[in-house]
Simulated scan of single mutants.
Amino acid sequence: MRIVTWNINSLRLRLGLLRHLVDALAPDVLCLQETKVPDALFPDAAPGALGFGHVARRGMKGYNGVAVLSRHPLVVDEAAPDWGGRGDCRHLAASVSLPGGEVLDLHNFYVPAGGDVPDRTVNPKFAHKLDFVDEATAWFRATGPRRRCVLVGDLNIAPLEHDVWSHKQLLGVVSHTPPEVERLNAWRDSGFVDAVRHFVPEDQKLYTWWSYRNRDWKASDRGRRLDHVWVSPDLRPNLGGYRILREARDWDGPSDHVPVAVDIDL
């Protein structure tokens, strides 16, 4: 099974790019973040035309939003928490039914970006981000241990030194500050393995996001790894490979994030 995660940064604006993604990666399950579309306006015909017969979505007007497109049946977990009680459509939990009767638990997250100032006392957005990750960590710890579980999404934190273009220069920049990194590591350690770093040593640079502010993103290569795929420890032996689709950053009208694919032998 190939699972792909991508912050599409507006589904309706970049709907045509899904064909490029499917042609390049042929995912079995595609998890999208920042869809920015309420459920009533979701383009229902598009997933089926791309071979995805099953769709789950949780969206709102203009902001946030997550969706799962699958070639296998989905059952949404309606009991999953509403983090912070905000109803802001940042998480979708579902079970994927596989041939042979097996079930894979899937969590698709869009973590708050956190604003610009890394100080919770003056920046409510940063406080919300830290509280969101704390709440998620506590919930996964309380409801674990997990088996046959995958967590993906734009987690908006680059935890490792080589997940950013300059560890020294970005230590005080939201997405790589110590409070965020400590929290993301604690969340992952609640019962997951970093599937991409399973293949790529931590001393190698690895990015999934390049700012729109960089006129030539490829030449400057000032990226961050904000998009993640985690698996429960029992799936570590089943990991078959990964791909970060860097060329997607050069598509016509691209997202500032690129798709991340992980193969799991199930």
Rank of each mutant, 00 (worst) to 15 (best):
D77N: 13
F42M: 07
P233E: 06
T143C: 04
M60A: 14
G241C: 13
E34P: 04
V200M: 00
D256I: 05
S175W: 03
P259Y: 02
P118V: 06
V133N: 10
K205Q: 09
P159A: 08
P27E: 05
E161W: 03
A40E: 11
L11H: 10
G100H: 11
D221S: 13
A158Y: 02
P73D: 05
G59P: 10
E247K: 09
D256L: 00
N108L: 00
F132P: 06
D39C: 02
R19K: 15
V173Q: 06
L170I: 10
S10N: 14
L155F: 03
L151M: 15
E34N: 09
L69V: 10
I157E: 02
G172T: 05
V200C: 10
K218A: 15
P145V: 12
L41E: 12
P178A: 00
V133A: 10
V4N: 07
A113P: 00
E78C: 11
R14P: 12
D28M: 01
D119F: 03
R12C: 07
D28G: 10
G101C: 11
A46M: 03
V29A: 02
R224Q: 15
R148F: 02
P201W: 07
P233G: 10
D134A: 00
I157P: 00
R141W: 08
V231K: 11
V231C: 12
H176W: 06
R225G: 03
E78T: 14
V260W: 10
P178D: 10
G144Y: 15
A142S: 06
H198C: 09
D44A: 13
L130C: 07
K125N: 04
R19I: 05
R19V: 07
A261R: 00
D131R: 13
T177C: 06
V229E: 12
L25C: 08
G87P: 04
G223I: 09
L130V: 01
W83L: 10
A24W: 04
L239F: 11
D44V: 13
E202D: 14
S95H: 14
C89R: 13
L245P: 02
S70E: 03
F132H: 09
L106N: 08
S190D: 11
R246Y: 15
F52G: 04
G101M: 01
C149Q: 12
P38K: 11
N7F: 08
N108M: 05
D256S: 08
F52Y: 03
V196Q: 03
L245G: 00
V231E: 02
S97R: 11
R14C: 11
R213P: 05
V164E: 00
L21K: 05
K36P: 03
L69I: 15
R12E: 15
S97C: 15
V111G: 01
L11I: 13
Y212A: 08
H162L: 02
L15I: 15
P73Y: 05
E34A: 05
E78V: 09
W165C: 07
V260K: 06
A24P: 09
F126W: 07
N238I: 02
P178I: 04
F109H: 07
V68F: 02
E34L: 01
D119E: 10
G85P: 05
R90W: 09
A45G: 09
D23F: 01
